[in-house]
């Protein structure tokens, strides 16, 4: 499910950025090719929650 996020920090040296998502997550993500600037609103597809993934793997 897509989620909106604000870019809160860009660390070009380590190739990562910190984002704050609309569902109140702070996440560290690898920088995309087009590096966004701080304050940019982006939309991304975050990995499904661990339990959901595990549930899918364990389902026969």
């Amino acid at each position: 499910m897509p989620v909106k996020a604000i870019v809160a920090k860009v660390d070009q040296q380590n190739g990562v950025m910190v984002i704050i998502t609309a569902d109140r997550q702070f996440r560290c993500l690898p920088l995309p090719d087009a590096v966004p600037s701080i304050g940019t609103t982006i939309e991304l597809h975050l990995q499904a929650e661990k339990m959901t993934v595990r549930g899918l793997l364990n389902t026969k």
Binding site: A8, K9, V18, D23, Q25, F26, C28, E49, K50
Partner: peptide
Amino acid sequence: SLDELADICPKHR
């Protein structure tokens, strides 16, 4: 800090 919050933020809704 923001960096630390990214590490410790709960993953589950």
